[in-house]
Computed example of a mutant assay.
Amino acid sequence: MKHKSIFFLFSFFFFLKSNAQCAMCRAVLESEEGMTAAEGINDGIVYLMAIPYILVGGIIFFIYRKYGTLKK
């Protein structure tokens, strides 16, 4: 348990900034001068990646609430 806690704290406080673009998209968008399209596409990819996690988290929350109220 101690190793898991240390790993969690280490990964939480010492994260690296990463980009969510594939290599081909990044190469095409870096040639653009304004870089606004690259930032927009990067934000869109992160948004699309977050939706499944939010949905699964919501389902788990509702299941927890349903079975948590039955035990009382």
Rank of each mutant, 00 (worst) to 15 (best):
Y67V: 08
G68C: 13
F10A: 03
I59G: 05
N19P: 00
G34Q: 08
L55M: 13
A20P: 05
E30S: 13
I59D: 01
S31H: 12
I51E: 11
I51G: 12
S5P: 01
S11E: 07
V46A: 07
G68L: 13
M35I: 09
A37Q: 13
G34S: 15
M49T: 12
I54M: 02
M35F: 07
T36E: 04
F8Q: 14
K66Q: 08
G40I: 05
P52Q: 06
V28L: 08
S18M: 13
I60T: 14
G40P: 00
A23K: 07
G40S: 08
A27R: 12
A27Y: 00
M35Y: 11
F62N: 07
E32N: 13
K17F: 08
C22K: 15
L29H: 04
I45W: 04
I59N: 05
A38F: 03
F14H: 12
E32V: 05
G40R: 12
K72F: 00
G57C: 04
F7T: 08
K66R: 15
G57K: 06
M49Y: 08
L29K: 03
H3S: 09
A37C: 08
I63L: 10
F15T: 06
T36V: 04
K66W: 06
A27V: 00
G34V: 04
A27C: 01
I41K: 00
M35D: 14
F14M: 03
G44D: 02
I60C: 10
E30K: 14
L48P: 02
I63Y: 07
P52C: 04
Y64F: 06
L48G: 13
F8L: 13
L70I: 05
M1E: 13
N42F: 00
F12N: 10
